[in-house]
Design a binder for these strands. Sequence first.
DNA 1: GTCTATACCGTGATAGAC
DNA 2: GTCTATCACGGTATAGAC
Lengths: 192, 192
Amino acid sequence: MTAQINRNRYAKGEARREAILAVALECFAELGYRNTSMREVARRAGLSQAGLLHHFPAKEDLFLAVLRERQQIDTRDYHGEADAIGSLIRAVRRNATIPGLVRLYMTLLGEVPYSDDAREYFVGRYDLARSLISREIEQGQRDGTVRPDLDPRTAAQALIAVADGMQVQWLLDEDQQMADAVEFTWQLMAHQ
Amino acid sequence: MTAQINRNRYAKGEARREAILAVALECFAELGYRNTSMREVARRAGLSQAGLLHHFPAKEDLFLAVLRERQQIDTRDYHGEADAIGSLIRAVRRNATIPGLVRLYMTLLGEVPYSDDAREYFVGRYDLARSLISREIEQGQRDGTVRPDLDPRTAAQALIAVADGMQVQWLLDEDQQMADAVEFTWQLMAHQ
DNA sequence: GTCTATACCGTGATAGAC
DNA sequence: GTCTATCACGGTATAGAC
């Protein structure tokens, strides 16, 4: 990327791109992917539809860019924390406080069967989470804080699954305490 | 509905409707909801687009009909079984063998944030599952087969969440043993 | 109940001027 | 980089024959 060589040359274009991306994320979360038109994104971003297409040649590209942005956030969140399971629980708890975020997540999930980009995003995300969490479970088993009879990989899968599944239930009824259910499951895995 | 008064009068129309519905379900599972056109459904069902519109005036109506059909199947499956948790695990295991079914499920879930019909369907589905499963957990606690310190409702939520969450992971990688993860979680809840 | 034909409008996408 | 103009397609709708 030449952006670092001469930042000013692309600064304006980059700023535009970022602004569009923020609008797109807002639209996807608010209206859903399929109910969001390029014209609406363009309107909210203050340029014409063709102007928008200069930055993102296809709607799919907008979708992809949103995915990539989220991936950066995820990776940073996970790597910044030594405590993968704690950060999973905290992330779930935090998600409930950010309007539209869980909606967006569900929208992205709904695209998985039909978009290779969406699949790629989630595969990477899950691989990372699974390996970090199962490693932590193994460590817990060595420390005697986690039941020694658990298969670390299955346990990690189950923990992540609870987090995802509870987002669905929360979306249907915001009274559902999604983080509590994840913590509950994690405590079941604790040494007896 | 007058269908019961004189069945023959509507038998042909009903058969057509059912055939269309089967095609629509196939299309949604294969192509996704948003990639399925009314014209394509009509083509596969062997009638014209206008003919299709006679039975289902809007695409949303097709979607709704698919939901209702699934709801019937679900209700029958759950009520036919005394063993709600066992039937949950069996359902998850069976889902992996029916092509497109998990895809369809994800597609429907993806519509939740934007379709009242989809929300209504899932709310009813989860309420039923949660109450049946939590009741069974309470019974297990009385029988001494389930840990007495568990909150039955939270445990039921977590079990359902694992089932849903594992479908996501399975969609990304069919090697994931989704039913095993549900069983694993259920065994964590067993009396120690 | 089903067809053909036709039309309206919103959508994603392209071409080419500035 | 942004625009106008234009396109083809899809969801929806209607009229009218059979």
